[in-house]
Each structure stands twice: as C-alpha cells, then as structure tokens.
Computed example of a mutant assay.
Amino acid sequence: MKNILFYIFIFIATCNVFSQDLKDILEQESADTTFLVASTFNGTRLLNGHSVETRKEGVLEFLISHRFGRVNSGFDQLFGLDDSNIRFGLEYALNDRLTLAIGRSSFEKTYDAYAKYRLLQQKTGENPFPFSLTVLGSATEKTIKDYEPDEKPSFSDRLTYTGQLLIARKFNPNLSVQFAPTIVHFNTVPESIDPNDIVSLGFGARVKISKRVSVNGEYYYNINPFKSQDVKNSIAFGVDIETGGHIFQLILTNSVSMIEKGFLAETSGDFFNGDIHFGFNISRAFQIKKAKNSNGLKYNDD
C-alpha cells in the first residue's frame, strides 16, 4: 500500500505543476466570450475504459460494473448469465479537475486505486481550444490465492500500474471521439518471454441519438501483447442511458475484467467468434459538498 500511495502522490504533484503552467497560458480569456465544452461523454466511463470526464467538485460517485459469462456458452449456462464478475467503486472529486478513487473486483479479487486529473478542457468562443486532456494513474493488487502455499508471491509481485492519456474532442452535440494511449506495467509477468510493459492505443466514440440516450464504441489495440498467451484486443459496444443522477450503460464486450490491466493486457475472448460478455455499468452521483466555478468560465453543453 505504501508503494501505491507513493505513486499516486508523485502523480498528483506532477499534474499540479504542469496544470498551473498550462492554466496560465491557456486561460487568459474573458468569461463573457469563452465557454468550456461540457458533457463530451455522459459519464466517467466510456465503456470498459475511462472517458475524459471528471466530476464536479464535491461529487461522490458510486459505480457498479457487472460482466456475465460468454454468450456462446450455451443454454446450459443461460448464455453466460450463470457466471458473473462484479466491481464496486467509489470516486470523489476533490475539485473540478482532480478525482481520487478506489475499487474492488471479484475477478481475481483485485483491489484498485487511481487518480484522474483534467489538464485541459475544450473551449469555444473568442479563445477556443480544440480538445480536452485528462491523465490517469492507477495501481492494482491481485489477491486471489491461485498459487501453491510455498510459492506465495510478495506484495510487490502482485502489483500492476497503469498510466494513460485521455484525449477527446466534442465535434458537435451528437458526436464525441477519444484517443487513449496507455501503458500497463506488470511487476510480475506470466513467463520470462513476456514484456513487463504493455503499450496499447485506445479509440472510442459516442453518438448521441436522443437527449438521454447515446451509442458508444471502444477499441484498444495492443502494440506488444504477452507472447506466452493468446491475447486479443479489447472491443466493446454499448448504449448509455442517462436518468437524472444515474447513468446506466448496457455493454457487449470480449473482456471480462473491468480494470485496465485486465481488459487491456489479458483479454482472451474473440469478439467476432462469439466470445462476448454482456454487462452493464451503473453509477449514482451524490453532491456532498457545494461546488464552485473557480475559473469563472461558463459551460456550453453544445
């Protein structure tokens, strides 16, 4: 846990330094003529992965993610519904830019913690800026006892780290796209021939079809996957439904894991061969502290 806290501390400190420099350069504009672009995506998750969005200051968000078994497992397994994996998570926005979070997944009994920081936000008006940029740093610990008693891994061996850039643009009220270069570091790998650092490029999009409903797609391409395993690229399609304080996502994906190290580096299912997991994400946001617009800029949802 000390290692996790250390990396999160370094991550936050670095982000604050760079953010202040960027803020001085990019936010010298009039609040009357420059607008922040809001709601690039409906929530903090695109599908499996994160979106560029962060919550407003003082918001506590409770997230439940669920993935069932493979649809092609047949009627005996009720097309995957007999099997399930679940993740519970809590996210808290310390301010409009910085979110801290913890979570626990039943898959491999994994605990995760992450910090998410919005460095830049898309703007329109007199002084526009073309995209939003958010950085993510996370650490996970796998606690499942899938080893022999005399081969128990150390705490460090069970850790994995992820660094990610989330770059998104809202082209119009109905279309948003995202690019997500990512690196996942494994302290321990399955075999000696496997790389400790997995590099992946993520692509995603949202198409809004009504005021509260949108269709999303997400794809991650692994540049250097594990060599000892038949790893597939993660694919997901889904529907977002926004209902007040809730965001409900229905998902079809070939990934069973709901954290980066799992769905990016360890997905084994072939989406186009029927290895599809039905699942959902649901979130509920609670405003537990009064928010303030510290930069004085107005928001534009269009």
Score class of each variant (00 low, 15 high):
178 Q>H: 03
178 Q>V: 11
179 F>E: 03
179 F>C: 06
180 A>Y: 01
180 A>N: 10
182 T>V: 13
183 I>C: 09
184 V>H: 08
185 H>W: 05
187 N>Y: 03
188 T>D: 01
188 T>G: 10
188 T>R: 04
189 V>P: 05
191 E>R: 12
191 E>L: 11
192 S>N: 03
192 S>T: 14
193 I>M: 08
193 I>L: 02
194 D>Y: 01
195 P>I: 13
196 N>Y: 07
198 I>E: 00
198 I>C: 01
200 S>W: 09
203 F>R: 06
206 R>N: 14
208 K>N: 04
209 I>W: 01
209 I>Y: 02
210 S>K: 03
210 S>C: 05
213 V>H: 05
215 V>L: 15
215 V>D: 06
216 N>Q: 07
216 N>D: 12
217 G>C: 09
217 G>Q: 11
219 Y>Q: 03
224 N>Q: 08
224 N>P: 10
229 Q>N: 14
230 D>K: 09
230 D>L: 01
232 K>F: 07
232 K>D: 10
233 N>D: 13
234 S>T: 11
237 F>M: 14
241 I>R: 12
242 E>S: 15
243 T>Y: 14
244 G>H: 11
245 G>C: 12
247 I>T: 15
248 F>T: 14
248 F>A: 02
249 Q>H: 04
250 L>H: 03
252 L>A: 15
254 N>M: 04
255 S>Q: 02
256 V>Q: 13
258 M>E: 09
259 I>S: 13
262 G>A: 07
262 G>D: 15
264 L>K: 01
267 T>W: 02
269 G>D: 15
270 D>N: 12
271 F>Q: 03
272 F>G: 00
273 N>S: 12
274 G>H: 01
274 G>I: 06
274 G>F: 08
275 D>V: 09
275 D>F: 00
276 I>M: 07
